[in-house]
């Protein structure tokens, strides 16, 4: 009897261990180690990132920094919705812009990303009737979120801009 109980207990332990192994494995989906999400939030320097992109030559227009208080006027994003922002806009001759936000957390970043997406759609509608040549840039706008950070880039050389952002915005 004692032997039987011990055997059953051992069996149960084996089943539990196998179950744990299966559930852990099923969420890797064959992803490489590089893409495994770190449990430690990544801190990014949005000032440095924005400067790198500005210096890269991906923009045709002259972008100038805009006071972050105008995020509401430009994108319906109030100051309370982010911790800090870097906003660079073109002269009005193009739809080009570079905008980076640091949100309070991932949830706030997701909300910012939604508003950025709406902003790009609205701009595409506006420029279709104003400067149709700019619509292509807006269609290829780069919008990426990494943890609590959001970046929106509308550039002439959007392919190069996307490559840079993939490297810088991890």
């Amino acid at each position: 009897m004692k032997k039987q109980i011990t055997r059953h207990a051992f069996l149960l332990l084996m089943i539990a261990t196998m179950f744990m192994a299966l559930t852990a494995c099923s969420n890797n989906n064959g992803n490489s180690t590089k893409e495994t999400t770190s449990l430690v939030p990544v801190e990014l320097n949005i000032t440095e990132i924005s400067q790198s992109i500005l210096d890269s030559g991906v923009f045709a227009d002259e972008l100038s920094q805009v006071d972050s208080s105008y995020s509401e006027m430009l994108m319906n994003i109030t100051k309370e919705e982010y911790v800090s922002a870097m906003i660079y806009m073109g002269s009005g001759a193009t739809a080009e812009r570079l905008i980076l936000f640091e949100a309070a957390d991932n949830t706030a970043a997701a909300a910012l990303e939604e508003k950025c997406a709406s902003h790009v759609k609205e701009q595409a509608e506006a420029y279709a009737g104003y400067l149709p040549a700019e619509v292509d840039k807006l269609e290829h706008a780069i919008l990426k979120t990494s943890g609590k950070y959001v970046i929106l880039c509308v550039a002439e050389d959007y392919s190069k801009a996307e490559e840079m952002i993939q490297e810088l915005f991890v």
Partner: peptide
């Protein structure tokens, strides 16, 4: 944690 990482979004007019 995986959901926090997203692919860039593309837009259509």
């Amino acid at each position: 944690m995986e959901l926090a990482q997203k692919e860039p979004v593309s837009f259509q007019t």
